[in-house]
Amino acid sequence: MSSNIYEGSVPVSVLKDTDVYRHTIAVLVDNEAGVLARVVGLFSGRGYNIESLTVSVVDEDAQLSRINLVTSGTRQIVEQIKAQLGRLVPVHTIKDLTDEGPSVGRELALVKVDGTGEVRVEALRIGDIFRCNVVDSAPDSFVFEVVGTSEKIDAFIGLMKPLGLVEVSRTGVAAIARGAGGMVDDALPKPKATPKRKKATKKVAKKASPKRKSAAKKAPTSSKKKR
């Protein structure tokens, strides 16, 4: 990935912030063997956190994969992670969805709950509140399919615990920026070299945390649309 931005716009005071933030980062990479290992190896080798990671081919001719990762660290670490990802040869584009404007993130979970009688009815009732689909039903169990933000899924799983929760399978977060315009593949020839990135780095200075909170609050309302 080419990166020739003057990063003086990330102020020292922001980089020196020792608070830990959660960031969702989208990475476009060549769809070839070993790319995921490079990314994961980078995180483990340098001791960065991975809270969630999803990968899938995203273009028609299967040349490009998108990795969505959720990581947490201080601003300095998060900037390091992005710079380190940028050094990997098969990486096309990196986008910090947390920094670069509002975004939506969704996860799908399959949640198995065993039980009969009153607890079974209660589980079904809560499933309904969370707009779950029941994808498997047996006389003494349900498998719920729940879609939403990680927080929503955490909440659902929390509620299922006393109601006979036996197994959880989660996909990890898929995330995308809100509003018009897609993620640009930096490997493609650019129509015009506009210094667009500068604006994005200025936003960094304003700090992302309040924005993130509001994004999280908004999240559950739009979950049904996605289904």
Partner: peptide, 10 residues
């Protein structure tokens, strides 16, 4: 190398 910058010293 962008990743050398702000790695050890801000």
């Amino acid at each position: 190398d962008q990743s050398s910058i702000n790695k050890n010293v801000i």
